[in-house]
Design a protein around this nucleic acid. Structure first.
Ligand SMILES: NC(=O)c1ccc[n+]([C@@H]2O[C@H](COP(=O)([O-])OP(=O)(O)OC[C@H]3O[C@@H](n4cnc5c(N)ncnc54)[C@H](O)[C@@H]3O)[C@@H](O)[C@H]2O)c1
Ligand SMILES: NC(=O)c1ccc[n+]([C@@H]2O[C@H](COP(=O)([O-])OP(=O)(O)OC[C@H]3O[C@@H](n4cnc5c(N)ncnc54)[C@H](O)[C@@H]3O)[C@@H](O)[C@H]2O)c1
Lengths: 215, 215
DNA sequence: TTAACAATGTTATTTATTTCACAAATAATA
DNA sequence: TATTATTTGTGAAATAAATAACATTGTTAA
């Protein structure tokens, strides 16, 4: 009898990846709450999406649930983890240890063991050698060497807007493949480098607009 | 001769609203740089979208450009402003004056005169009456009264995850119509209340995933 | 043991969003 | 003044995403 040919969607969408990360968080909470099994509709409720959406997203992971019992919480959690995290441990750096940078360092510390912020950087001598949540702040002069040595693939940019492009060029030169950018500027990057824009000002404007519409 | 019937899209999408906010920022920068006119393709370059996208988005604003000359920078800037901001000045509050809350208070101070953070709140006695960038932190016991009195429509939530739903219920009860939520939980809100989720952990996972794919 | 059930995995359908394409318009040029 | 070049505004087409539908299947309970 012919095996079912394994033909995975070669390019899961950004939205699917984001939701998988969300499902993983929900599964973690379910596990902590003592659940052994869950259904697509339960996960959907927690994540704020539809059950059909959950099942469709899970197709890319290739984890099979059981009719009637649903998904095994721990198994699905680990399966999504493998899919999102890959085999080797990933590392990130943060550039710009200001108000936001410090908050982020504090927040992410120990939160995702599979994706650790291994170093921070700033060009202000006052900040250098300070340690925030066991993450040391280095001089910008070290950044290329550390990114290369530690095989860092991801950078978090929290420098002022007019410094962001310069910093971007440096980290890409050093080998970074993806950037989470908090500065309110559209970064120019070569093809193959992924940029995620976290635009709080735009987000707040959006909320204000829809708050007003719906009154 | 019959006038062109003015039939505006009754419900511009979230994406369109977000991009309009972005275009406004780009126009501000163009104006500061001394530009008087701009083209859809120029704005598109700055915003990181296509020219067709820009023109389509601008349809909802109802501002007419000129063939050959493009858009008058100042005029379009103001027109988008009127569309996004509405007539009356809007107000926001922030709940949770911790690491992230303080960074946000500092960041938004004076940035958007049309949408001001008028008060902050915390339940930690240590934080109460502290002033961050001229924004005072009040006790949670005052929140209902201040939101009602100041006609606050928007709330920024930066409390720990397990407090976020409780805080949400309070601000909605007090009259808030829209929430920008930084806590990693899906908030339950009644119909008509708009929630924008700022999920940094999911965003970082996403970057890490695509960093890895594209190497 | 078997029948009924309820949830899955996946295809089909619908809906939303983006891109294309081009007539209309207007500033610049000859 | 006529002509040319170029950009706008907007339907039509294409693409992407979400939802619905349902055959399949493991589980439960009679
Ligand atoms: N604070 C917020 O909540 C917030 C919100 C949204 C966006 N942002 C954006 O995030 C960025 C940082 O904001 P912030 O409030 O933390 O600002 P900040 O001024 O407190 O911090 C910026 C830090 O970057 C460092 N820096 C400047 N130039 C540098 C360079 N070339 N190389 C390395 N380090 C450099 C500075 O020394 C400083 O420590 C800004 O682009 C801001 O627009 C901040
Ligand atoms: N720090 C970050 O960069 C970051 C990034 C992403 C998400 N977040 C999320 O943002 C939230 C805040 O993060 P943080 O790092 O600033 O935490 P924090 O602990 O520094 O600050 C939380 C603040 O909320 C206050 N608070 C707690 N319960 C409250 C209540 N019921 N009413 C009013 N105030 C209350 C606390 O007193 C404290 O001042 C958390 O949900 C966190 O998960 C933070």
């Amino acid at each position: 009898m012919p095996e079912k040919p394994i033909q995975m969607n070669p390019h899961p969408s950004e939205k699917t990846i984001a939701r998988l990360s969300l499902y993983r968080r929900c599964l973690r909470e379910l596990a902590q709450g003592g659940s052994h099994h869950t259904y697509s509709h339960e996960l959907a409720k927690l994540a704020g999406v539809t059950a059909a959406q959950v099942r469709r997203d899970l197709m890319v992971v290739g984890y099979d649930g059981s009719p009637r019992r649903g998904y095994e919480v721990k198994g699905l959690y680990q399966s999504i983890g493998q899919f999102l995290d890959g085999a080797i441990e990933q590392k990130a750096v943060l550039i710009g240890v200001g108000n936001l940078g410090r908050a982020i360092l504090a927040y992410f510390h120990g939160k995702t063991p599979n994706l650790e912020i291994v170093a921070a950087f700033d060009n202000d001598p006052q900040k250098i050698d300070r340690v925030v949540m066991s993450c040391r702040c280095f001089s910008m002069t070290c950044i290329e060497e550390i990114i290369a040595r530690e095989r860092v693939q991801t950078a978090i940019i929290t420098v002022p807007a007019d410094e962001a492009q310069r910093v971007t060029d440096v980290v890409i030169q050093a080998g970074v493949q993806g950037i989470l950018n908090f500065a309110p500027v559209r970064l120019q990057v070569p093809a193959g480098v992924f940029v995620e824009q976290m635009d709080m000002a735009v987000a707040l404007q959006k909320v204000a607009y829809f708050s007003r519409q719906r009154q």
